Amino acid sequence: MDHATDSFKEKLDTTYSFPALYMFKFIVRPDQVGQIEKQFSEHEVILKPSSGGKYVSTTIKIMASSSDEIIEHYKEAAKIEGIISL
């Protein structure tokens, strides 16, 4: 892991007591929603299109078993071109 990932993991471990409810928020293009839904196929993905329809805000709540699980989801999501993590 790099320094930023180590720092994020440390922050997660001090903020949460696992297992814990964790909320992901991403902004993607409409044609990328399927990729988010596939990655979080076992979880509800809440979609909110932007007023202009160019982007979709996604919210996903998961019961995470560890900080490593959260980091893995972020790493997978980062493979989606142009994704914005909030």
Rank of each mutant, 00 (worst) to 15 (best):
P49L: 02
K25S: 10
S17M: 07
D31G: 06
S57A: 13
P19G: 09
V56G: 09
E69A: 07
I71T: 11
Y16S: 13
E44D: 13
T59C: 04
K75R: 15
K38C: 04
F26V: 12
H73C: 09
V28S: 00
S17G: 12
G53K: 05
T58C: 14
V45T: 14
K25G: 08
T59P: 03
I80D: 04
S66Y: 05
Y16L: 15
Q32C: 06
I27R: 12
Y55I: 04
P19L: 07
I46G: 06
T15P: 15
A20K: 01
H43L: 05
A78G: 06
S41R: 06
L47T: 07
D68S: 08
I70W: 04
H43K: 12
V45L: 06
I27N: 14
Q39F: 13
K54N: 05
G52D: 15
S67F: 03
E44I: 10
I80Q: 08
Y74N: 11
Y74Q: 05
G53C: 06
F24E: 05
Y16V: 14
S51V: 10
S17L: 12
A78K: 12
I70V: 11
E72N: 13
A20I: 02
E44R: 13
V28T: 01
E42V: 01
I80V: 11
A77W: 05
S41H: 12
G53W: 04
V28G: 01
Q35G: 12
I27T: 15
G53H: 02
I70M: 09
K61Y: 00
Y55A: 14
K79S: 08
K61C: 00
Q32S: 12
M23P: 07
V28M: 01
P30E: 00
G53T: 10
I46A: 11
Q39C: 10
R29A: 03
A78P: 10
T15C: 07
E72W: 05
S66Q: 01
F24D: 09
E76C: 15
E44P: 07
E44N: 09
I46M: 11
G52I: 11
A77V: 14
H73D: 03
S57C: 08
S66M: 02
S65Y: 03
Q35D: 15
S51E: 08
T58Y: 01
F26N: 02
S41V: 12
R29W: 01
V33T: 13
A77R: 11
V45C: 14
G34N: 09
A20W: 03
F24I: 05
